[in-house]
């Protein structure tokens, strides 16, 4: 097995794939559905915005590859409690990390750094970003479906 594969499928990713966090439906909030037509990944992101404009709770459901599932799981962990603007900024930095040069430095993104290995697998970038695109749609209370295309 190559080092790049070990880096992509590191223990954190495999763990979040096996036991995704916040993997449930949230009633009464906003939600959006995301779809990656390339591989059929499909997920729904649910969220509740509290009175201070923070993401009070966030969850997801759906089916997908290990990368999209782990990314969704890590995302829900990392945006809980953030303001809408903070979540948007995090998405930008995350996107830069997974599309950056294969050998460039990695921004400090805490747990999300586990997905830095995606940089070496350009065809998997959409898997890693699906949850984030769907989060953005849910934040905009966009009930339609977003796709990665």
């Amino acid at each position: 097995m190559s080092a790049e594969l070990d880096d992509l499928y590191q223990e954190v990713i495999l763990d979040h794939n096996r036991r995704p966090r916040n993997f449930r439906r949230l009633e009464g909030g906003q939600h959006a559905e995301g779809f990656n037509p390339l591989c059929g990944d499909r997920l729904t992101v649910y969220l509740q915005i509290d009175d201070e404009g923070r993401i009070g709770d966030v969850s997801f459901q759906g089916s997908g590859c290990a990368i999209s599932k782990a990314s969704a799981s890590l995302m829900t962990d990392s945006v809980k409690g953030a303001t809408v603007a903070e979540a948007a900024r995090l998405f930008d930095r995350f996107q830069q990390m997974i599309t950056g040069p294969a050998d460039g430095p990695i921004d400090r993104l805490g747990k999300l750094e586990a997905l830095a290995g995606v940089r070496r697998f350009p065809v998997r970038v959409k898997c890693a970003s699906l949850a984030w695109h769907t989060l953005r749609a849910a934040l905009e209370a966009n009930e339609g479906m977003v796709t990665t295309e």
Binding site: M1, R18, D41, A66, F121, V123, R124
Partner: peptide, 13 residues
């Protein structure tokens, strides 16, 4: 428990 997309990536390498 292994998504076809992950199989494809590992096989490609």
């Amino acid at each position: 428990d292994i998504h076809p997309h992950d199989i494809g990536t590992i096989l490609d390498r």
